[in-house]
Structures are given as structure tokens and as C-alpha cells.
Design a protein around this nucleic acid. Structure first.
Lengths: 252, 252
DNA sequence: CGATAGCTTGAGTAGATTCAAACAGAGTGG
DNA sequence: CCACTCTGTTTGAATCTACTCAAGCTATCG
């Protein structure tokens, strides 16, 4: 059930069998959630964190005008709100963008895990810092990249993050979200995302059709985005398409 | 020496006298750093975190074109890189925007503190989560607010964060950074920041002259920005200008 | 089969950028 | 003390990127 979570962790650090067992014993009772469902309302006080087993969710904030900004996407194997363990109340909402499977982990259980395995505590802390690193990369994208580079950086990130948990290969990956959703990630309008996707297609870099991303020229995409995956801290990752081999030549 | 750090913590949680003593004993040997000095290079491996005692520093990432995006400002009382304790290597650079005073805290010392006072461990974790919350608010600003609202939200945030540590009052605060720096925070050009500042001045909302911000109409600024300070998690804060009284009427 | 959600394209517009020039203030040195 | 430089601010004019509004298209589903 938590295979993808374990893959995510093991891309960054060693996890002992005892730790693995403890983690497995902490997650049970998965729930299905339909697409476009609000999972956590902004400002709610929480007593559990939620692990995403399948599907794509987003963290978002919105303005009175109804305009919405997605601040991060989460994929299978991510905690969608591990930070609620220390913040208690979230400064953003979380919703499912595709049909999802989720599982709760009570904060009390997380506290027990940290007590019993301090190393897991460090890893949990690391995971929230990883989210912050992803936020910073998005800040860079939103502030300084033009539309095509924003889109390219976004696709590169999702490619690696999905690849870590076995949901992407060199050809591409299923994303299952709409162009409108992508626009809300990139701070653009869906109309402009559509035009920019056409540009990427015409430049033979990538293709996005009915929720599936085809990577036509990964190197070209990375170059366009000036994509440097070091912000994802894949220190132990050696899988296909995202391995250390690939990182050669990229500044760290 | 760490009075402002303690103020920051106590705006969020109770700190015992024992904890205070342990923190005080962990910080010594402050260094002066000139404005425009690189403090930490992107990608460097670190064995200590740095506490900012005085001045303004920024976390930044940049593109090959030389364009720079600031992802967060830090003020007196902030750790500029507490996350390096779990990340070891930073995905961004850190530089002083004004003359600063900083003090190192070895990671080994942080580990000891956490061992001796698990509660401090939770607080350190919280502090990095607070940075992430600030990142998310910036993502919202960069993605969805227009220039005037970006600027207003930025001034509101700095007002509160400086107010917490006693460096701002209802009239305004010293920021000491250039319009170029502000532009790099907001994803704009300095030319447009200048025009937008004129707009705020003409609308009698705020004024920015030689590094000092005068708040002419705080309520108006907050309205323009749709500013909701709950992302700063000031659960115990009751000081002037940022107290709970002021939060009435703002959605949480 | 019509309804609906999402994608696509066009035309006109607006917000922010670029390029350029001028100005103000602080510090420097002859 | 005055020219001189340097950094940062201010303003104008032209340009461009992305937005808005609008319409038509496509695929899916009950």
C-alpha cells in the first residue's frame, strides 16, 4: 500500500526493515476520493496527516476574485499535509485533481513513530523541507521564467517526481489533469497554456494530450527550462531517466 | 543577542526558561557582513545553520540570463538556513541585502538541543514549515496578484514580521533594501516597481523612500492585497499593530 | 442525440518590459 | 570646495507577452 512512499524515501535515504515495518503498520484504511473534491479546507485544524496512494492532489490558495493559485502538486507516495503535524492548521486548501486514493495517519501515530525511530523524525522533517524546496523552485518559475520555460520546468519536475515512484519513463507519463489546472500551477490563463503547449509541440519538445504527457526531447525541455533537478535532493536515486548519470553536466 | 529570535518563537509558542538558557548558550560569536555579500553559495554543503541578528538577507535562485528571483527575505531573529540542518546542501544562495550581523549554530549543537529538549525540535521543525508557508504566499502573489497587490502584500508581510521583533510600528519600518531588490522579490522589473510605488503613494496607501516604508493606510493596503496574516501563524501574538485585535474581520 | 467539459483559435487589449535618458544624493579626490 | 563618479530613482516612448472576450471545435457520457 505504501510502496510508492517507500520508493520516495529510499530515493533520499536508507530505510531499515524495522522502520519499513513500523511505517507499514501506521497506514491502513484507504479511501477513494473523486476528482475535483476538496480534501482539506484552508484553516481547518487537523489531527492527522494524509498519505496520497494514488492520483494527483494540489495545494492551493485563492483570491476573492475566484482566481486560484496552485502552490504544489502532490503525487502517489507524497504526504499531502505532513506539515499539518507541526502547523496543526493549514494556510491553504487541498483538493483532488484526479480520482485519488488516500490514507490517514494520525498525528499521535506520527509522534510515536518519531519517538521510536528518531531517524524517521529526521526524514519527516526532510520531507517538509523538500516541499519548501519545491515551493522555491516554483517561486523562481513564477517570477522569472517566461511561459514556455515555466511549462518546460513544470513538465521536467513532474517527470522526475513521477519517475521516482515508477509512474513515468523516458517516453512520458500520465498526468490526468486539465490545461486549466496547469494554468493554475503556472500563474497563467488556460488559453495561454494552450498556446504555449502548441509551441512546445511545434518545437518537438513535448506533447500534452488527454492528460498524458509525451516527452519528445527531454534534453531540449531541460535546456529551455534551465532545469536543474538538484532541488529535488535525489541523493540516492539511480533509476532510469532520473539517475545520477543524467545529472552529469548539471550544476549542483 | 538572541532577543529577537526569542520574540519570534514566543509569538508562536511558550519557551521555558531552561529552553531559553540552552538557546542562549548555543549562540555566540557574531560576525558582521557587508551589504551585497554572498553568505552561502547555492549547492554548498553546510555543517552549521546561521542566525540573523541584524539586517536583511535574502534567499535567491537565478537563471543563466542573470535574472535573479528572491524566494524569501529574512529579518533579525530568523534562521537564514535552519533547513540546512536536514537538507545539508541548499538549493539556493543566500546574500546580505543590507549590512548584517550573523551568528553560526553548528548542526551538532542543534542536534544536542533537540535531544535535550524535544520541544525545541518541534519548534525548529515548525520554523522551517513557517518558511514554507511564506513561500506559498509568495507563490500566490507571483502567480495571481497584479503589481500593486504584490507590492501591498509584500509590505504587509514585512510589516508584521518586523513588528514581531520590534522593528516596525504602526507608522512604518526601515527596510533598507533597494527598489531593485523589491523587484527581485516580486518578479517585476525595478522600473515597474518604481511606477507601482508611485501609484501606492498617489493612492495614499504607502510610501517608500530611501529604504524606509511609511504606512499611510494599513487597512487600505491589506484590502488591496487581500492580506490574511494567518499564514504567519501568530497564534500567541498580541503586540501592537499585529495583535489578534487587528485580525478581527480577517478570514482565518 | 443533445449536453457538457475541455481544448483550440482569432482579434483586440492591457499590464509589464525594454530601452533610453535624466535626476538626486552620497562619497571621492584633486 | 567643486567637479566627478557611482548607485539608485524617476520618467517617457515603444514594444511585447500574456490576458480578455468570443466563438467554434472535439470527445465523452447519460
Amino acid at each position: 500500500m505504501i510502496e510508492q512512499f517507500l520508493k520516495k524515501l529510499r530515493a533520499r535515504d536508507e530505510i531499515s526493515l524495522e522502520e519499513e515495518d513500523a511505517l507499514r503498520a501506521s497506514v491502513s484504511g484507504d479511501t477513494r476520493v473523486a476528482a475535483d473534491t476538496l480534501i482539506i479546507r484552508q484553516g481547518d485544524t487537523l489531527s492527522e496527516s494524509t498519505l496520497l496512494l494514488e492520483g494527483i492532489t494540489c495545494r492551493f490558495k485563492d483570491l476573492l476574485s475566484g482566481e486560484r493559485q496552485i502552490t504544489e502538486l502532490n503525487v502517489a507516495g507524497d504526504f499531502i499535509d505532513l506539515h499539518s503535524f507541526s502547523l496543526k492548521r493549514l494556510d491553504h486548501g487541498i483538493m483532488a485533481l484526479t480520482p485519488c486514493r488516500i490514507a490517514p495517519v494520525p498525528h499521535s501515530r506520527i509522534a510515536q513513530l518519531i519517538d521510536a525511530f528518531p531517524h524517521l523524525g529526521r526524514i519527516f522533517w526532510f520531507l517538509t523541507n523538500l516541499d519548501a524546496a519545491i515551493h522555491r523552485e516554483w517561486v523562481l518559475s513564477l517570477g522569472r521564467r517566461h511561459a514556455a520555460a515555466k511549462l518546460a520546468a513544470f513538465l521536467c519536475e513532474m517527470h522526475i517526481r513521477l519517475g521516482i515512484v515508477g509512474l513515468a519513463d523516458d517516453a512520458g507519463f500520465a498526468l490526468g489533469i486539465t490545461q486549466e489546472d496547469v494554468a493554475e500551477c503556472l500563474g497563467l490563463t488556460s488559453v495561454h497554456v494552450n498556446r504555449t503547449l502548441r509551441e512546445l509541440r511545434e518545437r518537438c519538445l513535448a506533447q500534452f494530450r488527454s492528460g498524458r504527457v509525451e516527452l519528445l526531447n527531454l534534453e531540449g525541455l531541460r535546456e529551455l527550462a534551465e532545469f536543474d533537478p538538484s532541488y529535488l535532493y535525489l541523493d540516492r536515486m539511480r533509476g532510469p531517466g532520473v539517475g545520477v548519470e543524467q545529472l552529469d553536466g548539471w550544476p549542483r
